[in-house]
Amino acid sequence: MDNYQEVTHVHEFDRAAGKKEVIRITVILSVITVIELGLGFWLISLESEFVRHLVKGAICIFMLAKAFYIVGYFMHLKHELRNMIMTIVVPLLLFVWFIIAFLADGSSYKNLKNTYDPYHKEQSQKKAEKPAHGSGEHEPEAKKKDAME
């Protein structure tokens, strides 16, 4: 049996309005992407570690905004019934714990290793023999270090 029959309230569909909405969301997504890329280019020349983290945080917020527009409008979730939205969105809240817990764990592992495993720390600070891909700006430094050892 075709379970289309179960759907009692077929969406009132106005194609012209739908097309307008698609154009609006496309423009929003493109603008956000361009801003993200702008921030990405800014990161290339940015030195301050603190500002770098701020910019990366901003990029993540823009990423979530894009996800909201894609899921809400392109996937039409915003126009579904509230109960259905909840069955999908509430389980995804697990990610909040998931991300915080695992990233904190990774960072703690790094700190513990650097504190209690001096050999690991020393090894990870050794400059590579090969020059960095593309630019050779690390080369002289690496050579100097090798010569000293």
Binding site: N3, E6, V7, T8, H9, E80, L81, N83, M84, T87
Partner: peptide, 16 residues
């Protein structure tokens, strides 16, 4: 509208 009284999809979407 009683969505949960049976006979229709309570989420108003098809199964698939």
């Amino acid at each position: 509208q009683k969505w949960w009284s049976g006979g229709r999809s309570p989420f108003n979407v098809e199964y698939g």
